[in-house]
Design a protein around this nucleic acid. Structure first.
Lengths: 327, 327
DNA sequence: CTGTTAGCGCATTCAC
DNA sequence: GTGAATGCGCTAACAG
């Protein structure tokens, strides 16, 4: 690979001049610029990013930390992040944290040693304290932590309210909730949204809230138990689509017909929900937008441009599928 | 951030010595080593990877190029790659190529400038010539190109034969095939496998092969047409699970009951196939293993260790679901 | 065993 | 406008 020195020799100028035309800064005579450009083409020269990074302290690469790329929510997010990052010449390092603080912290350390320019954090393992003291730009996605940290979330509580209200409108008389992990803030918010509408109901009891850990299988088991203990349950608000799918499977397992005998509504709007039968009714988040906005924010932070809004809360939207039926 | 120089001063030794204890090479007195280690801890020093990379020409990061991480086949592959890479201290850069040669080539160029240590290529855009002249270690996954290039694939042709044979055993009298893109080698192989068993059949006609582009929607449309033109069609071998899901939707759309009036079998064994109703019968590839093996191969290539096998072809496995029924 | 020194490839003062 | 020199932080001979 040719170096800047080779170019300078061939063009008969100093490396400083080559560097100037490369980075379009400082004055340089049109003639000499031409010579340099020619030499660059001649040698098929491309600058060495690592060397540049060493003096720059910038690598044009960012870290994307997700719990598990295998969870269908995150590929879409990752795709959005990558699309805009690619547009701006950044490259992205993918990290699966499994929500383990240790793994997450380790990734952060390694990437900082690699002069990463910033992070997009869609995982939850890292304590607030560490996030604030990252001394690298960071944007948090899908996990509101604190208003002082650049964040992109959607209306979790409101969405869960919408979901619950919709089931009530569908005529449900007794509605249960399958919730996500207690350690995950959006799971708590969605649970609150559900509670907002049912807390006062005469049929309500806290045993109607079961934990599905945001997973299909866990939700399946939880739903089976829930339905056995509450034969009169006729509605389920799931904390995410994966769990709604688990609930749907459980209903089929117990021969409860959906939506006739049981209504189910999910949360997220992942593509998977479109291939179940019946298709999932759900509260859709604008997943792609969340990723794209987060990426744009991070770029601004990195490039020291002002951020108009530091806390983005995006709208959710009810998508009617076949797991519910309006009366 | 502290540098190696700070450490050397605090420890009262030269930077060379510090470097030695850091990289455990060369002799160093136990006493001095202790002093150095102490200083490192004292200053909370961590080496700067970029500087190291500049003299090393190694970055401990590899590029993973996939067509689209949003396609559910790839997250699982990516997860496997990441898991083993993480084990060996490598970090992975994710690239979506959309199968576009231009995008792919651009990624390769950029990453080479960044001193990437190697590539795992699960995408198809790059012409063979370019892959061979990458001058960086590369392992190709899921897309056999040439026996001289380190490769991990599964038994595509055999798998398709198994699929077709299975439908025949299920009593199907006329079987169609929804194939993937002609530009993708495994799509061609699977098509061949299908042909191996039906080419000689009296009912066979090349119009029974339709293109679904490996996408659910395209397969849906293709299947609708196929079924309308061939009312007596009673079996479909889909080139992948996404298309099998499209076929399943089409069957429902046309009120053809599955598996009673129509049998469907997919290929891949993605998790999505487990949430359809009925669950997909499919030829499962060991996706995770493919990624893990590819990663291990790449590491060996990078670290100049010998490769026992350069071409891995993994076994596929028939997974019986509900979209077929054995008579 | 340990220190000195010369790169790695580029950006960036500071003179000219 | 342009070039020489220095530094980014670390590795790797090469001397001692």
């Amino acid at each position: 690979m040719a170096t800047i020195r080779d170019v300078s020799k061939l063009a008969g100028v100093s490396i400083a001049t080559v560097s100037r035309v490369l980075n379009r800064n400082g004055y340089v005579h049109t003639e000499t610029e031409k010579k340099v450009l020619l030499a660059i083409k001649e040698l098929n020269y491309t600058p060495n990013f690592v060397a540049r990074s060493l003096s720059n302290k910038k690598t044009s690469t960012i870290g994307l930390i997700v719990p598990d790329i295998t969870n269908p929510f995150f590929p879409e997010l990752a795709r959005a992040v990558e699309d805009v990052m690619q547009l701006y010449g950044y490259t992205i390092i993918l990290c699966n944290s499994d929500e383990e603080p240790g793994k997450e912290k380790q990734y952060v350390e390694v990437l900082k040693q690699k002069y990463i320019d910033g992070f997009i954090l869609a995982s939850n393992g890292l304590p607030l304290y560490d996030v604030k003291n990252l001394d690298v730009p960071v944007v948090v996605v899908d996990r509101g932590i604190e208003p002082t940290i650049p964040t992109v979330v959607s209306q979790n509580r409101k969405g869960a309210r919408m979901a619950t209200e919709y089931l009530l409108e569908c005529g449900c008389k007794k509605i249960g909730h399958i919730r996500g992990p207690k350690t995950v803030m959006n799971a708590n918010e969605r649970c609150e949204g559900y509670l907002d509408l049912v807390r006062q109901a005469d049929w309500f009891d806290s045993s109607l809230i079961v934990d599905g850990n945001y997973e299909t299988n866990r939700a399946f088991e939880a739903t089976v138990r829930l339905l056995r203990e509450n034969p009169d349950l006729d509605g389920i608000v799931a904390g995410n689509d994966l769990m709604a799918i688990g609930a749907l499977k459980a209903a089929r397992f117990l021969n409860r017909s959906v939506p006739d005998a049981l209504s189910i509504i999910g949360f997220d709007g992942i593509a998977m929900g479109r291939i179940t039968y019946p298709e999932l009714t759900t509260i859709a988040q604008p997943i792609y937008d969340m990723g794209a906005i987060a990426a744009r924010m991070l770029i601004k932070l990195i490039e020291n441009q002002p951020l108009e809004t530091i806390y983005h809360q995006l709208e959710v939207q009810l998508v009617e599928g076949g797991t519910t039926r309006k009366v």
